[in-house]
Design a protein around this nucleic acid. Sequence first.
DNA 1: GCCGATTAGTTACAGTTGCAACCATCATAG
DNA 2: CTATGATGGTTGCAACTGTAACTAATCGGC
Lengths: 184, 184
Amino acid sequence: MSPRPPRPRPDPAPPPTRAPQPGPPAGPDLPQALELGRFLPYRLSVLANTMSGAIATAYAERFDLSIPEWRVMAVLALEPGLSAAKVAERTAMDKVAVSRAVASLLRAKRVERSVEACDRRRSQLQLTARGHAVYREVVPFALAYEEAVLRGLPPRTREKLDELLEELLRRARALRLDRLAPSR
Amino acid sequence: MSPRPPRPRPDPAPPPTRAPQPGPPAGPDLPQALELGRFLPYRLSVLANTMSGAIATAYAERFDLSIPEWRVMAVLALEPGLSAAKVAERTAMDKVAVSRAVASLLRAKRVERSVEACDRRRSQLQLTARGHAVYREVVPFALAYEEAVLRGLPPRTREKLDELLEELLRRARALRLDRLAPSR
DNA sequence: GCCGATTAGTTACAGTTGCAACCATCATAG
DNA sequence: CTATGATGGTTGCAACTGTAACTAATCGGC
């Protein structure tokens, strides 16, 4: 999995910000229209893809590292000895993704694994010296990217962003869609 | 492409919000540490995936519709007669994704296509009556989901969110990563 | 101690996605 | 008119990702 193709996001289009053309066939009294460019899930998706795509390309080119691998390394750097399951928790990845990322990191000798004595199903994962070296190289890059995106935003605005993301995630997670859908 | 598997996001883990354990082997003087749960691209990615996953599942179950298909329908509802390339622009999808979504929508008779007379490479796409019917059914659902996530947020906060998303997307797009990476 | 139920982790398979190569059509130059 | 190049759109192929099935090990009675 080492020579991973970069797969950047082409991200071809600035959303036209507004296209308030009334739909001809639907008529003026259509119940509600939805402009994609103002639809929250869409906007978040485009934003996240733009950022992740940029980062993924950079990681792949510079460090031969995929995003899942990076996530695993990031949590192991702060909490060495985690099991794969714990890593999955911490990274919001599923266990298969973690398994594959770990396999790849093992091959690259960036992570090492030892089975736990008392429970031999479980294993303890930690960065190797090489892994730490890569980590120390990636972190400044990641932080620089984040800072570049946020540069110039006043602290109060950053706080607001932080709160908003927290709040939205909490709500999105709590949401049961069961009784939405006014139609049908 | 009709019986599309829902592919919901398991989204298994609340990020532990903080895990400020100092990395034992890295020592106290490591230049910077990065906590994944506070890293903007990561948080955006998790949030967007959570929302999109929920919506994708719901669309698939209720309307037999994928997100790419929905995006195509959404822009065609507001701007009938667009070409596939224009649709790609409007939806921030690449042309292959549009091509496939359109193919699927044609099969389902939710979109129809006619070649342009003056330029027979190009085609004009528009929703059929069936397509409009589906659209009118989906829109309230989509808006209800968005509203459910935003429910209770004061208008000022919503405006702030709107501005922040706009601003972040602008910055992310403008960012050339070329001269980032302080290391290497 | 032994059998069913659980949990950790991996493997297999299928569906999805993206890039690149590809046709078809149009535009421009000679 | 033909050649060259650009553009719209589709297809082939390879990589990625998720679900489900599977193996290995532990746990919980009995």
